[in-house]
């Protein structure tokens, strides 16, 4: 059993319950133990960074300090949190003056951090550590004939520094192939979903979601898989609004990659979070369930 320190992040406890549930369901069959970091706090996300940088680094540093005590790699399912922690590690390394200040802040609450936590995206852990060969051998229902648009979004691949190719990542495509499905040509795979602009109802945010949906549909995708709660929120929850605003003549189910894995591994569909999707996935995936 491989063990990781698991940092779910705030969204997985609320709007992205489907991600949380499906991760819980697939981890044991994959031979992975995601041990939740005790008493973790919010990473601050992009919004806090726009208001106060030092506080934002402090919030991340507390989690890193707690994770360091556990001595294991940190597994992070949310691309936003993933980037905040990577960035904090990088800035603590590059700027001694920030490091000194953050160490003082941690001292104040009896913590210390030596910069040794390896911050990793949960998708990358599943693809590289569990490995596609093993995943492929565990597949009970091959997803033959299913066309999937693999959407990586921004923060799993940028800023540079992760293990993934930044401009044309292929790891999710390979994962989807291992499940028996067909990853479609999807040139928008690393374009932005609109981030916080979508929830704010800004016209530009909704346009960004529309562009992703059209790109996937034009390339014959039956569904899209994502690796980030905010991407999911934007493309799934706001899809009815986008559909109405731009007169789209179709809907497209948006699944977390972990949900798709759950289907292929033949796991209980009631524990994969399908009920909390706004755009129902059943019409497309029911034949594999």
């Amino acid at each position: 059993m491989m063990e990781y320190i698991y940092y779910p992040g705030c969204s997985l406890k609320a709007t992205s319950k489907a991600y949380f549930e499906s991760i819980n369901t697939i981890s044991a069959p994959l031979g992975v133990n995601f041990k939740e970091l005790e008493d973790w706090n919010c990473c601050g996300a992009s919004l806090y960074m726009g208001i106060n940088e030092m506080n934002s680094f402090a919030l991340c540093a507390r989690n890193l300090a707690l994770a360091e005590k556990e001595g294991k790699d940190m597994a992070i399912p949310c691309s936003g949190c993933y980037t905040m922690f990577r960035k904090t590690n990088q800035y603590l390394k590059d700027y001694p003056e920030i490091k000194e200040k953050i160490y003082k802040v941690l001292e104040e609450v009896g913590l210390s951090y030596n910069g040794n936590v390896k911050v990793r995206h949960l998708a990358e852990i599943i693809i590289n550590d569990v490995g596609l060969e093993k995943i492929s051998s565990l597949v009970k229902r091959r997803l033959e004939g299913l066309n999937v648009a693999c959407y990586y979004g921004c923060l799993m691949v940028r800023p540079k520094g992760g293990v993934e190719d930044t401009e044309n990542p292929k790891s999710l495509d390979r994962l989807v192939t291992a499940l028996g499905a067909n990853p479609v040509f999807f040139p928008a795979k690393v374009r932005c979903c609109g981030g916080t602009l979508v929830g704010l109802g800004e016209d530009i945010g909704l346009r960004m979601v529309r562009n992703l949906l059209i790109c996937a549909k034009d390339n014959k995708a039956d569904l899209m898989v994502v690796t980030c709660p905010l991407c999911h929120m934007n493309i799934d929850v706001y899809q009815p609004r986008v559909k109405k605003k731009f007169n789209l003549g179709f809907t497209m189910p948006i699944l977390y990659f972990t949900q798709l894995m759950g289907i292929a591994l033949g796991l209980d569909k009631n524990s994969l979070g399908f009920k909390s999707l706004i755009v129902p996935a059943e019409p497309v995936v029911s034949k594999y369930l």
Binding site: K13, A14, S16, N41, M54, A58, R62, L106, V109, S276
Partner: peptide, 24 residues
């Protein structure tokens, strides 16, 4: 769809966050 639990998830010792923010 169960996406908005009404009760907040708090950390055990919120005062620690307050202390940290103050210091930061």
């Amino acid at each position: 769809h169960g996406k908005l639990p009404l009760m907040p998830e708090k950390i055990k010792d919120v005062n620690k966050i307050k202390t940290m923010i103050q210091k930061a």
